[in-house]
Design a binder for these strands. Sequence first.
RNA 1: CGGGGCGUAGCGCAGUCCGGAAGCGCGCCUGCUUUGGGGGCAGGAUGUCGCAGGUUCAAAUCCUGCCGCCCCGACCA
Length: 478
Amino acid sequence: MAKEQGITPQSQDFSQWYIDVIQRAELVDYGPVRGTMVMRPYGYALWENLQRELDRMIKETGHQNAYFPLFIPMSFLQKEAEHVEGFAPELAVVTHAGGEELEEPLAVRPTSETVIGYMWSKWIGSWRDLPLLMNQWANVVRWEKRPRPFLRTTEFLWQEGHTAHASREEAEEETRRMLGVYAELARDYAALPVWEGMKSEKEKFAGAVYTTTIEAMMRDGKALQAGTSHFLGQNFAKAFDITFQDQDLEEKYVWTTSWGLSTRMIGALIMAHGDDQGLVLPPKLAPIQVVIVPIYRKKTREVVLEAASELAREIRAAGVRVHLDDRDQYSPGYKFNDWELKGVPLRVEIGPRDVEAGHAVLKSRLGGEKEFIGLRDLPGILPERLEGFHRALYERAQAFRDERVERVDDYDAFKVQVERGFAAAFHCGDAACEKAIQEETKATTRLVPFDFPAEQGVCVRCGKPSAYGKRVLFAKAY
RNA sequence: CGGGGCGUAGCGCAGUCCGGAAGCGCGCCUGCUUUGGGGGCAGGAUGUCGCAGGUUCAAAUCCUGCCGCCCCGACCA
């Protein structure tokens, strides 16, 4: 009864639950340098699945992958005033290399707008070169004060899309299109309902005209920004002199966008779906969708393992990621707990009695009764069961989210609400007022949702007229 | 960067106050037994007590300095 292996319950300490679960499930371990993490094979497989789907979606929307260098001359970052101001405090800078001090220090990229802008100024000359639609999968480094695995690591993996367009309208459409791709990824693959909307001036990307975001709710009621898409206007075009000659013979600056989604998304789905037993992984991203736990004694070992192997082959042939846990040294009970901790959506148990009867036991990570399913039918029904699992997971997350969003018009009610979830309130749009709200309540504006209805009102804190023509979502955020 | 905590076996920790043989649980290895919700018994392996210096007959323990990590906060496209 080695029950001390248990993880901290969410209700007791959500933060500790998160740390426990990601380590015990072998997703990650801490690296030797502060704020770094090692993605272990199970965690990396999750990222690879997410990456595969997103990469496909990015290509389907017309973008091509490329790769730009890790090192960026310091002077590049200084060319866009707002950009350098935003990123300077968190830069890692190389001052020595090849045994010598460098003439010009090199920044390890915190994001690649600058180096891409530099290259594009060379590549873009004509309106025929536009739109230029690129993406890169890369690691970036941001020396944040307070790292947390997946949510804010010193080095992280992401994709960053960068596009250049001949017109403002086209660039704005692109900004919005890619945010939609992120929302789709969250919804259809991570089973994560998200709000899409606009960041406030205070929360936008350093160097952007405006930033759009998808925002998700974690099981402690806090918000997590799961992906962002920025309309950069001509800010970087002007800083890096990215111009083209248009059909009207005029020399013009391009309009650019950038958009990114990182390993933070993994943190989001862990904190949105997990429970006190451990992870609950969305089937479309789960490294293992179905685990088979064979149950046998010495005398029945061979016959059970043979039937289980055959079953695994057939399930694999049905296009399902299946794993047969044939580890001899662990009891079935241990394995049940182990795979629940690791968030595998469906479990199949097969023992001597089942082999005899020609069926197996099916159990969902979301609970419910054990079912007996004929061995011949099982491979065929698993894909639809996984679909059903996805839907149930999404609906559960949505129900949780809906229950924790309230419209509030009173500052006292506001303070209460942001302790348990999101507050939909009016705001004056003034950055100083926004800052005061953060200091007084720890909550920040998360976004102005696109799909909130037009509505007039006064700022929940200062009483001045609303700046957005609709309500804004406030929450405490990771 | 401010506040707090911790560095002792792979992991979690006790031992430090009051100096005197380096321990416990889990894990790991071997064997037997068990296996339908984290089995049992027996045997076994594993240490730069964060680092450096000092005091002492003797230091995980006392003194000085340094380093690292974690948590809370400020910060965080």
